[in-house]
């Protein structure tokens, strides 16, 4: 067998092995998207209800609460970045990190200091490679987030938010994560978590409208004290679930195109190896024919 042919056979074999792996990963991700999506829908009534409750207090009462009022001056911001633990998911983590870099630039231009919280191994390696500091990182389990992690993150950021600036506290909190839009589209999102900004699901009441007078039990500030950490928790958990679903979708897409690529490679190399084999045969035939001719020629002369 010719050397050329052997090289092609080797390449075909390696492409076939790769294809097996990417195909398996594609199928695994495809089955997990469904589960991740289900978890997202299952958790959404909770976050919707909490959001509605928070909007009610924020819209219908005028008590001043540190969590709802905008500080006079924002000097330090916390940014929570949600990436994946593992790669091979296309531009999934890169997109989020790029978005985070943009946010960093924007905040820096406004003269704010920035502290980071990282979720997912990919963001940790991104930061350690650039020798940048992060306060805390959570790794492992980005593809199957649990509520306790969200609780931990929420406790940490709310704690920092309630700390004074001089003691290292922050004045605002941003989340950067991939939002699951559909199987084929994920979009990096930047959300300002605190101070509360967008109150979803509630139309801003017109001036002439009479607000229903809310009754608070025990009282408005106590309700807010208890409600806001829960709200933050549910927003963070929602971000984690979105990110997990988006990760599976991105991985499925990336692995699908990798499998297709492997197919293309196998096809090309098969063609090349066929033509190498054919030319080898042609060469051998012409050698034999040439040899026979030479023998005939010599015997004729005798």
């Amino acid at each position: 067998m010719g050397a050329q042919l052997r090289v092609y056979r080797q390449k075909i074999k390696s492409a076939q092995t790769t294809k097996k792996i990417t195909r398996a990963m594609e199928l695994i991700s495809a089955s997990r998207i469904y589960k991740a999506q289900q978890r997202l829908t299952a958790a959404s009534p909770y976050s919707r209800a909490i959001t509605r409750a928070v909007s009610a207090v924020a819209t219908f009462s005028n008590i001043d609460h540190p969590l709802t009022t905008e500080p006079a001056e924002i000097r330090r911001s916390a940014v929570v970045i949600f990436t994946s633990d593992r790669g091979l998911a296309g531009a999934f983590s890169t997109n989020v990190l790029k978005e985070a870099e943009q946010l960093t630039q924007l905040l820096k231009d406004q003269g704010k200091e920035i502290v980071y919280y990282l979720v997912g191994r990919k963001s940790v390696s991104f930061f350690s490679f650039r020798k940048r500091a992060a306060i805390r990182a959570w790794t492992g389990g980005t593809d199957l987030p649990v509520f306790t992690t969200a609780e931990e993150i929420a406790k940490e950021v709310v704690g920092l938010f309630n700390t004074d600036y001089s003691a290292g506290g922050v004045d605002e909190i941003h989340l950067v994560y991939n939002k699951f839009i559909s199987m084929i589209s994920q979009e990096p999102q930047v959300v300002r978590l605190l101070p509360l900004e967008v109150v979803e699901g509630v139309e801003t009441p017109g001036d002439s409208e009479i607000f229903p007078l809310y009754e608070f039990e025990p009282d408005a500030s106590k309700v807010l004290d208890a409600l806001l950490p829960v709200y933050i928790e549910s927003r963070i958990f929602n971000a984690m679930l979105q990110s997990a679903a988006a990760e599976h979708a991105a991985r499925q897409k990336a692995m699908k195109s990798a499998t297709e690529n492997a197919d293309k490679l196998i096809k090309n190399y098969t063609r090349l190896s066929n033509s190498a084999r054919q030319s080898e045969i042609t060469q051998q035939i012409s050698e034999i024919v040439g040899g026979a001719d030479a023998l005939v020629d010599t015997s004729d002369k005798e």
């Binding site: 409750a53 229903p212 809310y214 009754e215 608070f216 039990e217 025990p218 309700v223 208890a226």
Partner: peptide, 14 residues
Amino acid sequence: EIGLLPGHEPMLAI
């Protein structure tokens, strides 16, 4: 304990 019937005033409680 609180009992709620239709027509209750808007309320938010812990």
